[in-house]
């Protein structure tokens, strides 16, 4: 498989506290990689740098060979909208919109007509088994349903990479499992890579491989790649 997303020697500090200290990682197209590590180890900062949300102090992030870290803000925003999808722990759906409108939103931002956007959004709600909440607002659905709506929204643009930061962190075991099964299944069917940040081994076990972030550095437990 081809390298899709590569981080090389990333350093990032917030004030005097270093979050990343020479972190390197490489993700292949269609690969599901779990990024594990204790709280405060730098795993979310790594995800934010890989996704072009946060600029590292030094080091490079390359997506399909293009240097994300050197792109102007506008280009990076377009990359995030068109090529990347995001699932967070909570608070990511727009409360004023219905679940269907939430899923259609990324398509509407790309100027897809409302009807076509909502039709595609409905197809994704079906795949994520939440068509029954299409007309409801996020405040009216359960945590598990809300997360499945969020996964549908992350996948609706057919992104090449899904960034998921503790996607089951606020759910019980059963709902967490359902979200993980549907997320990884849909990503595999769409050939999307997934960068999955989690501190839970059971969540990580849905991935193809795991890396551990410790003290701002990425450690491949097999010892094959470290940095």
């Amino acid at each position: 498989m081809a390298e899709l997303l590569v981080a090389d020697g990333l350093n990032k500090a917030f004030g005097p506290t270093p979050a990343l200290d020479g972190a390197s990682i490489s993700i292949d197209a269609g690969e599901i990689v779990a990024v594990m590590g204790p709280s405060g180890s730098g795993k979310s900062t790594l995800l934010h740098c890989l996704a072009g949300i946060v600029r590292p102090d030094s080091g490079q992030v390359r997506y399909e060979g293009r240097e994300v870290t050197a792109m102007p803000d506008r280009e990076r925003s377009a990359l995030r909208r068109r090529q990347f999808g995001f699932v967070f722990q909570f608070g990511q759906l727009v409360p004023e919109l219905t679940c269907l409108e939430n899923v259609a939103l990324p398509l509407r931002m790309e100027r897809v007509r409302r009807r076509a956007a909502e039709q595609r959004a409905m197809e994704w709600l079906e795949r994520l088994e939440v068509t029954d909440v299409a007309g409801k607002r996020p405040g009216e659905v359960s945590g598990g349903q809300g997360q499945r709506v969020a996964v549908a929204r992350a996948l609706v643009t057919n992104p090449r990479v899904i960034f998921a930061d503790e996607p089951t962190g606020a759910l019980d075991s059963l709902n967490g499992e359902r979200v993980m099964r549907l997320l990884t299944q849909s990503a595999r069917e769409s050939h999307a890579a997934v960068v999955l940040v989690t501190h839970e081994a059971r969540v990580a076990s849905y991935s193809d491989r795991e890396v551990v972030v410790r003290d701002g550095r990425v450690r491949d437990l097999t010892g094959a790649r470290r940095g």
């Binding site: 081994a201 059971r202 990580a204 076990s205 849905y206 991935s207 193809d208 795991e210 551990v212 450690r219 437990l221 097999t222 010892g223």
Partner: peptide, 19 residues
């Protein structure tokens, strides 16, 4: 620490298999 990492990797491998 390497011993713990080797064991962690083996546990995670088996967990992936079971999933």
């Amino acid at each position: 620490a390497d011993l713990l990492d080797t064991q962690t990797a083996e546990h995670l491998r088996l967990m992936r298999e079971l999933t």
